[in-house]
Write a protein that binds this DNA or RNA. Sequence first.
RNA 1: CGGGGCGUAGCGUAGCCCGGUCAUCGCGCCUGGUUUGGGACCAGGAGGUCGCAAGUUCGAAUCUUGCCGCCCCGACCA
Length: 491
Amino acid sequence: MSKEITSRQDDYAQWYNDLVIKGGLADYSAVRGCMVIKPYGFALWEEMRDTLDQMFKDTGHENAYFPLFIPKSFLSREAAHVEGFAKECAVVTHYRLKNDPDGGGIIVDPEAKLEEELIVRPTSETIIWNTYKTWIQSYRDLPLLINQWANVVRWEMRTRLFLRTTEFLWQEGHTAHATSDEAVAESRLMLKVYADFVENYMALPVIRGVKSESERFAGAIETYCIEALMQDGKALQAGTSHFLGQNFAKAFDVKFSDKQNKLDYVWATSWGVSTRLVGALVMAHSDDEGLILPPRIAPVQVVIIPIYKGDERKDELDARGKEIANALKKAGIRVKFDNNDNNRPGWKFAEYEKKGVPIRIAMGLRDIDNQTVEIARRDIREKLTFPQDKLVEQVEKLLIEIQQAMFLKALLYRDEHITRADSWQEFEKLLDEKGGFISAHWDGTPESEEAIKEKSKATIRCIPLNNPQEAGVCIYSGRPSRERVLFAIAY
RNA sequence: CGGGGCGUAGCGUAGCCCGGUCAUCGCGCCUGGUUUGGGACCAGGAGGUCGCAAGUUCGAAUCUUGCCGCCCCGACCA
């Protein structure tokens, strides 16, 4: 990313929009705040989704599906929850349209008003816990470990492609447990799953932590989160896992009999990641030439581009290209052989760079004669010539190398952008000039947190897990503090 | 919902101050040909109620008023 682009916020927004749109991931739609995810973008999401889905299953979870609509009364059962979501709900009030008797178009039939309005789910805790009530009677029914892949709607005031759209795709896990400890362990386990996925597949280092009280999920006792850093120095919450205590069990009256036949409310967790992860990927890894996708989740890992000379030996080039593509495919590599003759090689090079394909293999007559190919790495934009034999091994090795290099580059950037501040002046100066995470003492009160947010726009992103205890004074209030927490301007 | 900017062909735009061959240019698209190692070239062609509505005027993309939509910033948030 160039200096000029980082220097101004609106240019950075433009840079990001261009990456998403020109990279072929998504477009704005006719509906305000919603986006169309294009085939390439959806293929990327599918790679991420399928990987996560397997990780959930490997940790004992099952998929299910719950309704899109939530009766209004459900939402009000948990007080903090309703407060958190009421302001951004889409509401269904009618179920029929009719022709306008005054001519012209079509109108909502006033006679088709619903007795109880339906809320388009902003999240599914309420409808799910209403269901769990009928599923859980005994400790033998526990733990209940369910995930759903779904769309949700939150009527946000301002939207951004992938990062915040009115409708978005996500997964939400909702589990029920016999003990508090078990539920806490579950929410921590899922945080680990998320962190592993984002770091190992998305090549994006994250900080694991817990949210402060005021940043907590509406209805949670504890919110665990992973926080990533974007190239403009702003933080992005990449995933959350909540320990819900017995709040939802109480609100929806979900009790179980333990081994001693004693009735108790169950303990709950919920956890989710969304298509926002795609946005994180784009912002964290791209450069001015376009997207850079990490090999492990790139929908196309290798693109092969033949370079023709008229019709001369075209068949030979095609045959050899397909052969190489098949060999790579057999090794489990996602490969595309692009011999579309409508575009010239230079155009294709640029196009696949914009799409972030990790490896490009170019092959012309020169290569056929020399038994070589040209391999170009997207991440460091390096071109090298390799012999065709052992190409599969070479590509496999390179994909791993790229994955590692991308993670290390992001890690280096992230670590360089965690800075300690010991005074308010230092804190403001860092926010203004450097950005990133700022590690500073905080007195632990919501009042100081709020005042800091008000004055600096920075929020507490998290209190890192296993945070070292260290005596100090709050950068805002001057009162004693036991530990540093991470502040940042966030998306 | 506040502040800023913008709506002209599929996309990006010039023209708007100062009303009158003015609907500009680039990309893309279609046809034919030559091409293909970093976004090809030549020739020909299609595509527009200048966001919508009203007003001023002999005459409006251009001036006035109202509306609609979009983007960016802020508040809100994953």
